[in-house]
Write a protein that binds this DNA or RNA. Structure first.
Lengths: 198, 198
DNA sequence: CAATAAACATACACTCTGCATGTAGATTCA
DNA sequence: TGAATCTACATGCAGAGTGTATGTTTATTG
């Protein structure tokens, strides 16, 4: 229901349509699987046709990529918002991990970002996406901790990805009903294990 | 090319056909994605028709499950074969981790078990599969280490899954070209971090 | 050896994806 | 400002894939 059909600029139309499609697809991809969600269903829910979709996105995978990108940015923003700065390296890492697990409790988010994402876009594709968002923060946090002499010196890329993987699995476990406290206890132990006892 | 078409029992026919389909599908699922591999291609490569496939498996997903099961068992067997026993808890864990990373270097295995697997069968589905194979060994190794007083006491399920996730990501990284030494260095650090300094 | 069931092949209906073509609205420029 | 052009989107079509229903052959049962 548009209230007014006044003259709209092409740029506005495009942005609005892209946003509408991404948001509608996000909702559906969060409810069902990527494979189970057809483009006819997406455009029907958005009230447009597949012509609009394929005009703005090369294919279904490109739409999914845009959705994943948006969702990763949202998660990063939620973490940033919940992260008080002025903390020491260890506390900053723990606060960030906790915030990540909280952010990933949004319905369907784990499947979208942690199951379908890697399968559809590949590990490299997902790395590229959340290397620009969430993981960047983690990587920097680890680098800072190492430079401050609070943490063991280890290959940064490998450490970042393996820790991120542990957090991801923790988020999936919480989503599957595991107690958040249990998961955070292990996350804390992993991080503390890397710290150098001052 | 069958050499002889002698009278075969139904049980033999079924087992042979199931094995043929699983092996053929495994090969294709290792080369391409689950989504990219159609059932017509699978049965063509096996020299049979889709009728055979749908007689033995409820659907394409069921075939994939059988393939994943088989592949997980293979990995577990390779690890077991490379694991000398008589090691201390820490050394056993490290040897197992190393063997896992080696086993996962088989072409396409990471995508099959670590990308498509979770997406197609769900995390729960994959957990159920490798809870019967690889992860069982890890869980027991951790339990032993904790009982022996060599490792911190932590929630076993959470610790197992998070460590396994780190190993999985390490395997994916190696597959993507990362240095095995870097990944093993981090794996070692994570495990050592959990050990209690005697 | 007739009857039945299992193993597999063939054929069909349905759905999805991607593209090609058509149309309305926006932008450019004389 | 209005014709030409381009962008945004809709409609229609071709190819492919999945699952099922039905047909045929081979094994099993009594």
């Amino acid at each position: 229901m548009q209230e007014r059909l006044e003259r709209r600029t092409n740029r506005d139309r495009s942005e609005a349509m892209r946003a509408l499609l991404i948001e509608t697809a996000r909702k559906l991809f969060a409810e069902k699987t990527y494979a189970e969600t057809g483009t006819p269903e997406i455009v029907a829910a958005a009230g447009v046709t597949r012509g609009a979709l394929y005009h703005h996105f090369a294919d279904k995978e490109a739409l999914f990529r845009a959705v994943a990108e948006h969702e990763a940015a949202t998660v990063a923003a939620e973490i940033e918002r919940a992260a008080p700065d002025g903390l020491g390296p260890r506390e900053a890492l723990l606060a960030g991990s906790q915030a990540y697990l909280e952010a990933m409790r949004a319905p369907g988010r784990t499947r979208l970002l942690l199951l379908d994402g890697p399968a559809v876009l590949g590990r490299a594709g997902m790395d590229e996406i959340d290397g620009r968002h969430g993981n960047r923060t983690l990587r920097e946090g680890l680098a800072i901790a190492m430079r401050a002499g609070a943490m063991q010196r280890l290959p940064l890329a490998a450490l970042t990805s393996q820790l991120a993987a542990a957090f991801d699995r923790a988020a999936l476990a919480v989503d599957a009903g595991s107690a958040m406290a249990d998961q955070m206890e292990v996350v804390t132990a992993l991080i503390d294990g890397l710290m150098l006892d001052a």
